[in-house]
């Protein structure tokens, strides 16, 4: 957090590399789709019409072709004209939320949704919002109680629970 504004304004990625990365992602998806549709059969049978792989095959093909076009267009951009896709400072902010969110998603598997949500909201408020501790505890506590009542008690929708709930006899 101590770098100069200049540092955080520097491009973390160029537009060009981002374009190429996303085009590569599309190409990979297209290729995967093509591989599986070849297994399923891509023909148009006389009596039955298209086989299960008929549409996916052409979808995959179009995705691959389109991604190649998009990649070529990105490559044609001159280095000098390349804009910043995201600046270092921005990327840091995005990652400060994205990384905890990914950890949160993983945590839900172990602790259930309530405990993980409590931690996530509390830490978010404390570390990013700089709220006093009592607020950072009270708000998430209130939120999970409301969710528990609405989902488990009113609508009887069971949400994932972990060891803590089992301990409390709520599981």
């Amino acid at each position: 957090m101590s770098e100069s504004p200049e540092e955080s304004g520097r491009a973390a990625f160029g537009q060009k590399s981002a374009e190429l990365a996303v085009a590569a992602f599309f190409f990979a998806i297209g290729a995967i789709v093509i591989v599986d549709s070849l297994r399923l059969g891509t023909g148009w049978q006389e009596v039955h019409g298209p086989q299960p792989g008929y549409f996916p095959f052409y979808l995959g093909l179009i995705i691959c072709v389109a991604s190649l076009v998009n990649a070529t267009r990105a490559l044609l951009v001159k280095r000098a004209d390349d804009k910043a896709f995201v600046e270092v400072g921005q990327l840091k902010l995005v990652l400060t939320v994205l990384v905890p969110t990914a950890i949160y998603a993983a945590l839900v598997t172990w602790t259930g949704i309530y405990a993980a949500s409590f931690l996530y909201i509390a830490l978010f408020m404390r570390l990013l919002g700089k709220y006093p501790l009592w607020k950072a505890v009270a708000v998430p506590a209130g939120v999970i109680v409301v969710f528990f009542v609405v989902f488990e008690q009113w609508f009887k929708v069971p949400l994932p629970k972990g060891p803590l709930e089992n301990l409390l006899g709520l599981g």
């Binding site: 969110t101 839900v108 949704i113 996530y120 709220y131 998430p140």
Partner: peptide, 20 residues
């Protein structure tokens, strides 16, 4: 409601929504 309160709550709601 300030962003640093509402954002994590929204993400939690999204997670619950996706799960259910």
């Amino acid at each position: 409601v300030p962003f640093s309160i509402i954002a994590p709550i929204i993400i939690v709601i999204c997670a619950i929504g996706s799960f259910t």
